[in-house]
């Protein structure tokens, strides 16, 4: 991953990205440039390929039978799908937080330490765990109960624990797939504020069905929809304030004003 070239100006860059499940082309010709240390939201109706794109960024789709890709996903100038790239290493640099909080049935401490242990981390584990929990704005709530099960936490706390777990392996990019859809409005706003804080040090890409969340929480927004072949296409990509006040494409306008989708 050390290869450098001009494209490391972007955190991730896709070039003519096409994603397939068997013969079905789920995503068509996406050229997307993710700005580092910003929050980028991907929005669009169900089936537009937004989660497929997100998952391709840390090769989570490798597990899906029949999945294959064409084009390139560049990270530090290197195609993430090049034959010599180790997907496990990709996931260390590009972490993921899922829709439903999924802590392991272990202690809070072990949940956070897990990734580092697997990677053979030799440093001070207590410091690493505390740092990750602080960065995830959870430390103050759990510091006296680190041995309690991660599953004993509330939904919002569990999601922050999962964010801490992702942070503990020192990623550059955090992918979030509908991270708040299982949370109440206050827990949702806490996660959004946390995302804002994390964006000082990390690049965040979030897929969300919640248009208001994309509007509130992101710096850039990409709008995806389906074309006539039901393949996901990126219609428009720009600064969030522009997309939500003056979209350039009528399909974006129709979607964000609730007249389509």
């Amino acid at each position: 991953m050390s290869e450098q070239n001009l494209s490391n100006h972007f955190a991730i860059e896709t070039r003519n990205l096409n994603l397939f499940y068997g013969n079905f082309r789920a995503v068509k010709d996406v050229n997307l440039q993710i700005v580092p240390r910003k929050i980028t939201a991907i929005i669009g109706p169900s089936g537009c390929g937004k989660s497929t794109v997100l998952r391709s960024f840390n090769r989570m789709n490798d597990f899906v039978p029949g999945f294959h890709m064409e084009g390139e996903i560049l990270f530090h100038g290197k195609n993430l799908y090049a034959p010599d790239v180790d997907p496990v290493q990709v996931r260390q640099y590009i972490g993921m937080v899922f829709q439903k909080p999924n802590p392991f049935p272990k202690s809070i401490y072990e949940n956070v330490a897990w990734g580092a242990r697997i990677n053979g981390y030799k440093g001070n584990m207590d410091e690493l765990v505390e740092g990750a929990l602080r960065a995830a704005a959870l430390w103050d709530e759990v510091k006296d109960n680190l041995k309690k099960s991660g599953l004993s936490l509330s939904g919002g706390q569990q999601q922050r624990l999962c964010i801490a777990r992702a942070l503990a392996v020192k990623p550059e990019i955090i992918l979030m797939d509908e991270p708040c859809s299982a949370l109440d409005p206050i827990a949702t706003l806490k996660i959004e504020d946390l995302m804002r804080e994390l964006s000082e040090n990390y690049t965040i890409i979030i897929v969300t069905h919640n248009m208001q969340q994309a509007a509130r929480a992101s710096d850039y927004t990409a709008f995806f929809t389906m074309d006539e072949d039901r393949a996901g296409v990126m219609v428009e990509y720009g600064e969030t304030s522009q997309i939500f006040t003056n979209p350039r494409d009528k399909r974006t306008e129709d979607y964000i004003t609730g007249r389509f989708g």
């Binding site: 208001q212 509007a215 509130r216 969030t240 304030s241 939500f244 006040t245």
Partner: peptide
Amino acid sequence: IAVVATQQ
């Protein structure tokens, strides 16, 4: 306008 559109 941007705040109204993005922050509800």
